[in-house]
Nucleic acid binder design. Sequence first.
DNA 1: CCTCCACAGGAAGCGCAGGAGT
DNA 2: ACTCCTGCGCTTCCTGTGGAGG
Length: 397
Amino acid sequence: MSSFLDIISKPTVFKDRNVLSPSYIPPMLLFREEEIEKIMVAISPALKGQRPKNIFIYGGTGSGKTATAKHVMKKIEEMTSPASAGYLNCRVYNSRYRILQKVVKDRIPSLDKPGFGLSFLYEKLLEHVGEKGLQFVIVLDEVDMIKDLDDLIYMLTRANDELKNGNISIIGISNKLDFKSRLDPRSRSSLYETEMVFAPYTSRQLQGILDQRVKMGFVEGAVRESAINLAAAIAAGETGDARYALKLILRAGEIADEEGIKEVTDGEVEKARRNVDEDVASEVIATMPEHQQLVLYAVANLSISGSRYSKLGGGDEGFLMSGEVYEEYCRVCRESRKKPRSARWYREYLNDLELLGLLIMVESGRGIKGHTRLIKIAYPPAQMKKNIENNWSIVGG
DNA sequence: CCTCCACAGGAAGCGCAGGAGT
DNA sequence: ACTCCTGCGCTTCCTGTGGAGG
């Protein structure tokens, strides 16, 4: 065991790990200059005291939507005219009531207590904006999470009609494509006054972004250029997700530290990739309900010990039958003194596990036991089993 | 042919935590 | 802060499908 001092004085490739975190907003936002420009143009009427246009931003994960919006917000706050911006993540504030409550209490601290009615908060917001002739921009991140978005947009549009002085406008952000069609036509045309699509970053752009962050976050010369390029290429090959690219390079740095290497090379990036993927799998397992884990555990067990019906011809080796898996699951339950779920629910668990990509299932169809399903584990069973067991030691089962 | 077995998946209902609304 | 109600996780029951065996 190494002491705390040993740990903090251990040599590291990092200079400042914070700049590699996904929530960090760099002072210079690369490859989104055009988008920033376009947003500023849409906002600019505010400078002349006119109503800015609402904006809708669409783009996949890690395409810089939130970073760009926050960057613009900073610029808005710097404007000379009375302008102000508020950022809300709609995963947390997912109804017009909560949004209104949050906005009002941020602006008017004396109202930071529960129990106010919707209409009261609405009046207070109007007062606040109207008194100062404020140009108020609300950024709604993950706007598709709002349950009564139509009502919210209607409310804000009406607010603009009532305001003699000042205006309220919206920047909505989402990564859901089908979301637009779920909107009421009137609120749609209102929210989509200016529509923008953020394309995924290309490999070259990701290189640039990684370059920038590596310069700030790593000790000079600690990361080989080819390692950066590899990380960029991997991320671009997936979805052009900058967050994923950053995670790769961060993990690669951590691996280098663990191994006591002074330089991050392609090898560390490769390891990081496997590492990050495994992280995802074990995270998925950790968040599953206990009995779903037990089902998966039963499948892993049988995959190791072999199926009683394994003499199926035609490339079906290694597949298990639904019935025997359920038996094994019940046995595991008895062993740990837990009441097994019903067979019906067990099937739902199987379907979920398939959806998560942890199991592979095929309909039997030909010649076996009527209508059943053949089940196979999607990862090496021993590793999977260990993965689940690790989880239980935390829970205490 | 019919019946039974082994299973899939729909429908209805139930208890309860936690979210929505005031 | 407080109440009401929705939705979730699950069980029970049921209908449907297709091979096995008489």
